[in-house]
Nucleic acid binder design. Sequence first.
RNA 1: GCCGGAGUAGCUCAGUUGGUGAGAGCACGCGUCUCAUAAGCGCGGGGUCGACGGUUCGAGUCCGUCCUCCGGCACCA
Length: 677
Amino acid sequence: MTRFYISTPIYYINAEPHLGHAYTTMVADAVARAHRLMGEDVFFLTGTDEHGQKVERAAQRAGLRVPAFADAVAEKFRALLPLLNASNDDFIRTTEARHYASVQALWRRVRDRGYLYKGQYSGWYCTVDEVFVPETQLVNGRCPICGNAVEKISEESYFFRLSAFQQALLEHYHRQPDFVTPAIRRNEMIAFLEAGLEDLSVSRTSFTWGIPVPDDPAHVMYVWFDALTNYMTAVGYGALEPERRATFERYWPADVHLIGKEIVRQHAIYWPAFLLAADLPLPRRVVSHGWWLMDGAKMSKSKGNVARPHEYIARFGLDALRYFMFREMVFGQDANFADEAILTRYNADLANDFGNLVSRATTLIHRACEGRVPAPAAALLARPEEAHLRESTARLITQVVEAIRSFQLSVALRDTWEVIAETNRYLVTREPWKLAKAPDRHEELAASLYVAADTLRIVAELLRPFMPVTAERTLAMLGLTPSPDGWRGLEPGTLKAGTVLGETVPLFPRIELSVEDLRQMSTDTPVSSAPAVSTQTSAVPAVPTVESAVIAASPAPEPPGTARVAAQVEKISIDDFMKVELRVAKVLTAERVPKSKKLLKLHVDTGADQRTIVAGIAEAYEPESIVGRTIVVVANLQPAKLMGIESNGMVLAGSLDGGEPVLVGFDQPLAPGARVR
RNA sequence: GCCGGAGUAGCUCAGUUGGUGAGAGCACGCGUCUCAUAAGCGCGGGGUCGACGGUUCGAGUCCGUCCUCCGGCACCA
């Protein structure tokens, strides 16, 4: 049996799971399910990346020991999977013992073949924050975090001889034209390779939350050497048990690493270089998708405009969310995630076109044929209208398979909806509701309803990877269960006459809400942490209705121990707070900082003095508009240089979801100098 | 400023390697069926394919210049 191994990235646990993570997982899931239906032996992997200094620090901020923090956040990612109906075969964590064994085995192998050496990693180091600061992030030669001087120091580090693989990688790119897709990413990688490769620092001594370097425990491995290796760990690399080793032989190399476009270099250059160094087979393909934009802006943890999948699942149902994301994102490109768009897709595509079609077709059979699939006369199936729809349906099977093989899920769904529309047109052409009233036209009635039901059977089978629950419910209405043979023998005409239909139940009740209503719901009500979502095995899952959407969106207690961990911050005392000197100030002058997008240079009167403050509010405020305005500043902040201008203090402003800043103000005018607390 | 992406109908976008008179969905208007989730079906209005120049028998598609928008970074203390 052909085997098919697909992975998602392992998700880094310094932030909460969001729609972007959910999307990658859902795409991998749909592709994995499709390959299972094609009769392949599928291994579908996802998991969490848990090491590194960022996690160490996030744990500190949360006031937790690092392993406890990692457990809590990793659990959130793991808990998302059933919510997405993900059919992953394994969930790997880089903190697991099997992964330590695997990574260390790979390290030894690469080391013994001469591709690792010890050297000095040098950079700018801030002793206050205890971090290396990349040269590009220095603010006038000072630490961007605390503003103190940084010093150039060196840290012992192991280096990987990445430079040795430039030629081999370029050759591989030319031998395997589809190694990296889409083409734009492949071209970027080739350009990167042609520019030359520098050796890669792959260990650190400045933190300890990582996998120790074999035979040199003062070092832990740095980021990618650890993380990427998970793809081999999960299928048994580095294991001692014979059966695990056999698993590795069976599933490695992976067929597809599915990733987001921001980590192409690591997967398409570093990872294959590590494998070349170890003389291990390279993954067949690295496939990257674009980003989901929220109203045109990139969704990111740092910006805070992060959409969580839960609320959309609660509102529209999981399958509708899956449909929307698969249908809306063109392979390789960015896509916009808008409430209006998902609402439109739901009502137009799912409710009107598909749900209603299933409803009308099955109802007709219930009424006119006593709930049994009628037997069609061969001569009537050969008429042009019938032949045409049957041909379209037969063609759809290959179209969907081809689209999935090239990861164009939107194309697969677009083509499927073309057949759905054709079936709606077919019913109008045949008008079975009229035939049912003419006793002498039973043959025609039977043929038309048979063709409709047979088409819906095939459509439902083809929808299984995309909308597993919906597919199953549709088949149940037709009196069927998902074919155990998958997509083999799907051809038109294989529906058995006499099949007793199940009860007709609306698949996607129309949602008669305006976009404003939806927005209202999402801002008014906290989102439940785990709305009930049916899994693939339940026969009659919950139907999203307006009512249930409202209910599901009501607050629910978060599970103890996992909730809000990342958001927890250390509590400070009143004394700590009083160290911050907040003062009312008045803006005297304001001007744009040249060549800057976000910065305004302000002269302010703080009551006690006049000073210059540089504030990152230029995107929201015109300089003229804030002169004379009363603001709040942090008066006792250490000076910092921004774009070469010394800033003495900080202007307080709030922002919604990382959007444009809004200045803090007062109900009544206050004179400069007043203390704020 | 550097790097990257994008400009096609009111809106959201499709348009492989240049080749039938430029498309879909949504929205809108009109008509129509009545089986169906007030759904379906038909017809219609609308676009100098960002601008200019070039290559070509032929350019939305290739090349050049420019304009605009977006993202990332440099700058959000």
